[in-house]
Amino acid sequence: MSDITLCGRIAPSPPCSLPLAGMGIRAGFPSPADDYLDSSIDLNGYLMSDPDACFVVRVQGDSMSGAGIMEGDLLIVDKGRPALHGDIVVAVVDGDFTVKRLHRRHGRLALLPENPAYPVLVPQSEQELLIWGVVCGCVRRY
């Protein structure tokens, strides 16, 4: 049972800047001439350092609730970023996708849930564990 579904792609939209402090919303093309760029945020740029390598997945289940990742959240997954100890990753276990925290210390390898109701996954070897990508953002609507 996989605990994410793939939601497909991020639309290659032009950057869209929103002002950080609210006097209404300005949306449109940023230009190098904009001298108030500091005060606005491009959400795509904020969430993704390399949009070409980023994919969006939707979370199923609550195994990562301790890390603030809830059922239905959209995760931005950077496939190109190297997975380091402590990163939240999308991994493939027995052919299924799963979101867990990567533990990689002292030759020990494990996928840690952030919810005591779930077991720690310990792959038998490095070969058996495929890290699909590193989670670099989480989007939720209220």
């Binding site: 390399d50 070409d52 390598a53 496939k79 190109g80 699909w132």
Partner: peptide, 8 residues
């Protein structure tokens, strides 16, 4: 290697 890493 980059295509493999970033896109699989």
């Amino acid at each position: 290697q980059t295509l493999l890493d970033k896109l699989g």
